[in-house]
Amino acid sequence: MQAQLAAKDIACRRGDRLLFSGLSLQCAAGDAVHIAGANGVGKSSLIRILAGLLRPYLGEVSHDGAMGLVDERLAMDENHTLRDALAFWERLDGCGDPGRALEVLQLDPLMDVPVRFLSTGQRKRAAMARLLNAAQPIWLLDEPLNGLDDQARKSVEALVALHCGGGGIAVVASHQPMALPRARMIALADYAK
């Protein structure tokens, strides 16, 4: 089955503010989309709408294939070590090769550190490791470069490129420029009312 993700004419309202409207998106296998825009234009809301966590005010979202999400919330128990926290999600996702993600993201030295002591960038890398382990064809990334140093940033960009090269879909919301080959750019401000 080919992964696909489609949004048709969606609008997003938060409180009494209409953030954007009339946005359509069509992603087939191998596509990368970069959603750009200033703070508060609705990038995170759009990602959550695509993930099915938030109902769009108007429009429809449909997808084929499992979706993986990386956002500002790590969803790991703060008192557990990174090893235990990742192991829980690996058991749930049925991961085949957890070692690869740790190597690429250089998490090995951090495995025995409790999650609450991880820095912003280390937390982002931990979330990316879970995403890699889960082998979901559709990636939804909300500000994946926040807090990352240059090297980690290059790793994440390479991982996204590799994922799309292998027939995956990546939708990335980021206010920072990001090196994604053949990525379509959507400036969310164009859809603001």
Partner: peptide
């Protein structure tokens, strides 16, 4: 704490 940490969001995406 799980709601705040986004655990239920991640579970939702995994069909739980």
């Amino acid at each position: 704490s799980d709601l705040e940490g986004g655990v239920f969001d991640q579970l939702h995406l995994r069909g739980v």
